[in-house]
Structures are given as C-alpha cells and as structure tokens.
Nucleic acid binder design. Structure first.
Lengths: 204, 204
DNA sequence: GTCTATATAACGATAGAC
DNA sequence: GTCTATCGTTATATAGAC
C-alpha cells in the first residue's frame, strides 16, 4: 500500500492563511468546543469569549459549520506534512514509524486539540460529507495499516484511541511533554509489535 | 491500592428499574447522542424518535440532564459488578486482569455505548458534578493503576482510549464480536506488559 | 472590522385536559 | 401515560450604519 505510492497532491490544508480576527475566533472556538462540544458551542459564546458581537463573528465565517471546518483544517495541517514525509518511504514499517512519531508529537504539542475534534459527533458528521477530509483519512490509513486484515484494522483503531486519549485524559494532565512523549512512543511500539527504544532523546 | 481494600458499598447503579416508557426514551437518547452529541440532542428529537410529544418525555424525566444521568447509570451498571469482583482479588495483576476482561466484554456487548458517553463533553461535565460517579471512577482507577507513577497513569489513559475507540471506530464496524474480543485482549495485554494468551475460548 | 437591531426558528420546561 | 398549548429564552443568520 505504501510501496510505489505516487506522491499525491496535497489536500491543501497547509497554505490557508487566516487574519488575526479569524485566528482569534478559531482559538476561542476550539476551547469552547472542547468544553461544551460543537453542538453546545454557540456563536454568542464565541463572540463573548473574544469580546465582540455575534455579527462580527459572522463577518469572518458565514456559518458555524465553516468555523468547524476551518478549525479542523488548521489542526490537521501539521499532519499533512507528516503524511507526505511518511509516504515518501518505500517500506511499510519505516513509513508507519515516521508517521506515528509525528502524530504523537503533534498530539502532545496541541494536547488534545485534534482529539477533541476527532471525538465530536457533530465534527465527524460534518467532515464525513467533505471529500477533502475523507481522502486525507484514507491516506492516513494507507500508511498505518499494512494489509486489509481485521487484525490490522483493530490494531489501528486501538492505536488511534490510545494516542488521542493518551494526551487528553485527566490522568495525564500533570505529565510533562517529554515524559508523555516517551511513554506514548513506548506503548505505541508495544502495541504495534515494534522494538522499543531505550533513549527518548529525539528533538522536536 | 487493591490489597486490603475494604469492600465498598455499591454506588447503586445496578438496582434501578425503569418503566417501558423510560427504557424507550433512554434507548432513543443513546442513539441520538451518539449521532449528534448530548448538546445536539433535543427533547423534541427524542420524542419524535419514539413517536410521542415532548411533554410525554418530560413526564418520565424532569429535565434533559436527568436523561443523561439515567443513561450513564444504565450503561455503567454492568461495570459495577465487574469492579466489585475485581476488588475481591487481593493481588493487583489479577484484579486488573479480571476488570479489563469484563470491561472489554461490556464494551463489545454494547459496541461503544459507554464510549459515546465517555467522550461527550456535556456528559463529562455533568458527571463531574456528581459525587456518585466520581467515587466510581476513583475505584476504577484504584484497580487499574498500581502505583502513582506517571508511567502507570499514561498507560491507564492510553488503555482506556484503546478499548473505547477499539470497539466504536469505523474501521472495526465489520469485525465480529469474537474476533474483536480476542484482538482487544491481545493488544491490551501487550499494552500492560502481561503475557498474551493463545486461546480465546472464554465464555461470556 | 465591528456595531445595533431584527427576523425566524428551535430550545428547555410547565400547566392543565383526557 | 399522553396530549395541546404556551412561556421565556436562546439559537442561527441577516441588514444596514459606522
């Protein structure tokens, strides 16, 4: 699945630039969605959080849906780069290793921002209707799953949950980034059956 | 933490009986919350799903919050039994092993019902204010985490995510229960560093 | 880019009849 | 146990001034 894959055109998440006003909205929206869910986050709440009126928010994004889409684009942008780098490898284990390492780095960097979106049913529903995201997810699976066996699919599902929850669970709130990263890598390798490394000294 | 633990009083999830009308409401609510989130599920949607009016729903549950609480009580009820059985063991690895096996069984049985609730921020917020649930979660941690090391906490967080997502992820939608159970047990043992079993023949 | 003001709909919740 | 009808509030979204 990875060997001989043609370098696909970027989905285009990376090069979207946002104004300062838009960035403030997205920051506030992410925080509120994490606390109340996408359905439970109103435009009024977002407006209040950044100290403007609803109309000002609507001037930046035509609908609430567009805010969610823009938010997901932003949080998935870093993964696009990692995905392309992983696809460049021509053997499966190295591609997966590379991708997982970067996924973990990003997950820790943003401490559950993507996880929040990943588990929100409103976000999931919305993105299910967007071809751009579905293609992206399919590419991710292509690197993470080496065959079509149920074994590999269950493993990938568990891995995605382990990483996503591993960075956002209340139990790890007090764990510093470096410790969390080395633990996540260790358990991830254990889960996929790869040899565990002794040193954790990989810069980010 | 487990050795010498005194058999605590049940939180009382198990013995709540519900009328047929209440059960219909909870069934509909669970399905809708999985699709739209708790905040995105209105009383009108629940009423429409079972073919009654909003007022009929309010006759069974005084508020929307009570529906969510009742739903969580119902889905966590099976775990209470498993937790007590696990606490009866006086050595840690066996207690954890026993609990994890039952958690996986229940997760598969209901295919992500509890996972849905676990990841919904509205549900999390609501239960955070209920002492009954907080005590229950603390008891769960007591069996799953053997010490207070960050290592153990990260491991427990990842494990919880791996199981929860492992049963509800789209990738495993077509995997039959027995296959899913043996895979979940295998990867769970791998994650906690326990020896993997060869046979999966354990009745339910 | 932000404001006030408003239109229209849906929300949670209650009262009272059957 | 279910209904109709309603209250007060909030939701998404828009128009038009500054």
């Amino acid at each position: 699945m990875v060997a001989g894959v043609s370098r696909q055109a970027p989905s285009g998440f990376r090069f979207i630039t946002r104004s300062a006003a838009q960035t403030r909205i997205l920051d506030a929206a992410l925080k509120l969605i994490a606390e109340h869910g996408a359905a439970g986050t109103s435009l009024q709440m977002i407006a209040d959080a950044i100290g403007v009126t609803k109309a000002a928010v609507y001037h930046q994004f035509k609908t609430k849906e567009q805010i969610v889409v823009a938010l997901t684009e932003r949080e998935l942008g870093g993964l696009e780069e990692a995905l392309e780098a992983a696809e460049a490898h021509d053997d499966f284990p190295r591609a997966r290793e590379e991708l997982l390492r970067r996924v973990i780095d990003l997950a820790i960097e943003r401490r559950g921002a993507a996880s929040t979106l990943q588990f929100d049913p409103v976000v999931v529903r919305l993105l299910a209707g967007q071809e751009q995201f579905q293609r992206f997810i399919q590419r991710l699976y292509g690197v993470l799953i080496d065959d079509t066996s149920e074994d590999a699919r269950v493993s990938a599902a568990m891995l995605s949950g382990a990483i996503a929850v591993g960075v956002m669970h209340p139990l790890v709130a007090g764990v510093d980034d470096d410790t969390l990263r080395s633990q996540l890598l260790r358990f991830t390798h254990r889960l996929i059956g790869a040899p565990e490394e002794s040193g954790a000294g990989d810069g980010g």
